[in-house]
């Protein structure tokens, strides 16, 4: 400091408070019981403190999820903020668990807390990473599937920030379609 007197460290506030959720699949419990709220934070330092404290995504057991959502939004389709929306889905091949999964997930977290989606950030609800035997997935959830410009621009930003090959398409699935699907494939409303 200029005066020579040590100044207190002031944490860097985030635009939004974010809540981390952890899902572990216990067949003796229902979905809601398995989805646990871990903690909330609203500064950069508290984000890093939490991030360093928990397991990396690649260290989670099969069937587990991490979710990061704006405070007050539950990580489920039925929440008011999510029910008219959908998600951009990044599918990862099994061989990419580890390095790519952790890098992608961290990048998504930095996009969320750093408000990387410019004018469309109001439409962003949160993100989920699913650790699954058949392939891990990262979803970025938005609130309104009908706001096509917002959805597409958010998708573009995701591809840029995650350095996804421009020739590799990613798909946006509306939650209503995911809920209603009869097979294993949900249609992409946007790519």
């Amino acid at each position: 400091s200029v005066s020579g007197v040590p100044q207190p460290y002031i944490k860097h506030p985030l635009q939004n408070m974010w809540t981390l959720w952890y899902y572990e699949n216990d067949r003796n419990k229902n979905w809601e019981e398995n989805q646990r709220e871990v903690t909330s934070f609203d500064t950069v330092e508290d984000f890093w403190s939490l991030f360093h404290h928990i397991k990396q995504a690649s260290e989670l057991k099969q069937g587990c999820d991490y979710s990061l959502f704006k405070k007050g939004i539950l990580p489920m389709w039925e929440d008011d903020a999510n029910k008219r929306g959908g998600r951009w889905l990044i599918n990862l091949e099994k061989k990419h668990r580890g390095h790519d999964l952790n890098n992608y997930w961290l990048e998504v977290l930095l996009c969320l807390i750093g408000e990387a989606f410019d004018d469309y950030h109001e439409d962003v609800c949160g993100a989920v990473v699913n650790i699954r035997a058949k392939g891990d997935k990262i979803g970025i959830w938005t609130s309104d599937a009908l706001k096509s410009q917002s959805v597409v621009e958010i998708g573009r930003k995701i591809k840029t920030r995650l350095n996804i090959n421009p020739n590799m398409p990613i798909g946006y699935q509306i939650h209503k379609d995911t809920m209603a699907k009869s097979g294993s494939v949900t249609k992409n409303t946007y790519t």
């Binding site: 460290y9 860097h12 950069v44 807390i113 750093g114 408000e115 920030r161």
Partner: peptide
């Protein structure tokens, strides 16, 4: 209104802050 935006590099810089 205003919005608090953090660049990626800045967030990473704070990773090891006290």
């Amino acid at each position: 209104g205003t919005r608090i935006v953090y660049e990626r590099a800045f967030l990473l810089q704070l990773r090891n802050s006290p």
